[in-house]
Simulated assay, not measured.
Amino acid sequence: MEKWVGRMLSSGNLYSANIRLFPIAPFGPGGLPDNVDNLLITWQSTNTYNAGLDLTTWNKRLEFSFDAYKKVTSDMLLATQLGAYSGLGTAWNDIKTPTTNDGRMTNTGFDIGLTSYNIQNNNFTWKTNIIFSKYKNILNRMNEPNATLPGTFDEYGTKSLVTLSQQGRPLGAFYGYVTDGLFRSQAELNNGIDYGLSIAPGSLWLGDVRFKDLNGDKVVDDKDVTVIGDPNPDFTYGFTNTFSYKGIDLSIFIYGSQGGDIFNYSRRQTEALSSPYNNQLTTVLNRYSANNPNGDLPRYNQWHNNNNRISDRYIEDGSYLRIQNVALGYNLPKSLISKIKVSNARFYVSVQNLYTFTNYSGYDPELGALNNNIRFMNIDNGHYPVPRTFTLGTNIEF
């Protein structure tokens, strides 16, 4: 139910001024202004343009389709960018700035489909279907050239900036520090760059992660964060082969994705190496130590959290090829089933998610959006993997 207080609503929307109600406060129930209204805003608009081509050749043995598209989203609903002088902001405890219609985002791409009837005779048929897709996402314009849409991940009350959407870049690009290996010598520690910590075994020391000074000011700080990955794949594809021999049929479907990055957030806990009481992956056995100076992972470090900064240390290639479905079936001969007044009887066995070829270290490279948030694409925080499913069944028609 909406509760009006002047021009203020206690139920949230973007066009009116809202209030936040508190049932318990030092002087009893009360409320605070939540945002500044803007009664002129409208719905954002989307225009989609398509062009396609379908061809059939070689006596209908080869079918080809091509579809190109462009989707333009304009008048996006964005928070007004105002300076601190206004007393307004976008944080959870701020009085929010007005929402305005501004911003533009473009998705362009194409899909190619190819179907081939390779063999067709009375006893044996073989059909192949291939699909190839490619798209590109760009956030063309925001209400200010330097405006951003931060993707801040809340981990038990600790907020970490993982993605940052900026004008001229893809939505949800990973954002963080760039690593430069580990400190493995005293000379590397004393390289003249200020990392914000003193040089000592209980502070910055051998085996800690070394970050790049991107702007060259001899200080590694938040001015050295940059785009470290893109969750969008270069292209996706699918491949289906269907065979039939007399009463036996076999179908094999594989698909894949190439080039998309994954931020393996779960490794921030399982490879943290900051507490002897936390479960860790077996990969930490190859950490840096006095006995293993060539270890791949940083040393055990309970003194500071620099080694676990949001960085390209957790960026992995999310490319994969998956055998998604294999189905084998058998249709009983008509001469046999007609005796029991059955028109068709088919027995089949199938398996879903048979095997995935990937170099990704997590359970499943096919992630989607974390918490259904488009700014958190391909972030793995313990994503439950797709199960492998075996099915045995029959289809009987009378």
Rank of each mutant, 00 (worst) to 15 (best):
Trp4Ile: 01
Trp4Tyr: 11
Leu9Gly: 09
Leu9Ser: 15
Asn18Asp: 13
Asn18Met: 07
Leu21Trp: 13
Leu21Asn: 12
Gly30Asp: 13
Gly31Ile: 00
Gly31Asn: 06
Leu32Thr: 11
Leu32Glu: 14
Asp34Asn: 15
Leu39Asp: 03
Thr42Tyr: 07
Gly52Trp: 08
Leu53Met: 15
Asp54Gly: 05
Thr56Arg: 11
Trp58Met: 12
Trp58Thr: 05
Arg61Ile: 00
Ala68Thr: 10
Val72Arg: 10
Thr80Asp: 15
Leu82Arg: 05
Asn93Ser: 12
Thr97Asp: 12
Pro98Cys: 09
Thr99Ser: 07
Thr100Trp: 01
Asn107Ser: 06
Gly113Val: 03
Ser116Lys: 01
Asn118Asp: 09
Lys136His: 12
Arg141His: 11
Met142Gly: 04
Ala147Arg: 03
Tyr156Thr: 01
Ser160Ile: 00
Gln167Gly: 07
Arg169Asn: 14
Arg169Ser: 12
Tyr177Pro: 07
Thr179Asn: 13
Gly181Met: 04
Gly181Arg: 07
Leu182Asn: 05
Leu182Ser: 06
Arg184Gln: 08
Gln186Ser: 12
Gln186His: 02
Glu188Cys: 00
Asn191Phe: 02
Gly192Ala: 05
Asp194Cys: 05
Ser198Ala: 13
Ile199Thr: 00
Leu206Asn: 13
Asp217Phe: 12
Asp217Trp: 12
Lys218Val: 02
Val220Gly: 08
Lys223Trp: 01
Asp224Thr: 02
Asp224Pro: 05
Val225Gln: 15
Val227Phe: 05
Val227Glu: 13
Ile228Cys: 07
Asp230Tyr: 10
Asn232Pro: 00
Tyr237Gly: 09
Tyr237His: 07
Phe243His: 07
Ser251Cys: 01
Ile254Phe: 03
Gln258Pro: 00
Gln258His: 15
Gly259Thr: 04
Gly259Val: 09
Asn264Trp: 06
Arg268Asp: 00
Arg268Ala: 10
Ala272His: 03
Leu273Ser: 09
Pro276Ile: 12
Thr282Tyr: 15
Thr282Asp: 12
Asp296Ala: 15
Pro298Tyr: 10
Arg299Val: 00
Gln302Ile: 01
Gln302Leu: 00
His304Cys: 03
Asn305Ala: 13
Asn307Tyr: 05
Gly318Leu: 08
Gly329Ala: 04
Ser335Asp: 15
Leu336Arg: 04
Ser343His: 04
Ser343Phe: 00
Ala345Met: 14
Arg346Gln: 11
Arg346His: 04
Val349Glu: 00
Val351Cys: 12
Asn353His: 08
Thr356Trp: 03
Phe357Trp: 13
Thr358Lys: 08
Tyr360Gln: 03
Tyr360Leu: 05
Tyr363Met: 08
Tyr363Ser: 14
Asp364Arg: 03
Pro365Ser: 05
Leu367Arg: 02
Phe376Ser: 01
Asp380Lys: 04
Asp380Ser: 04
His383Asn: 14
Thr389Cys: 07
Phe398Tyr: 12
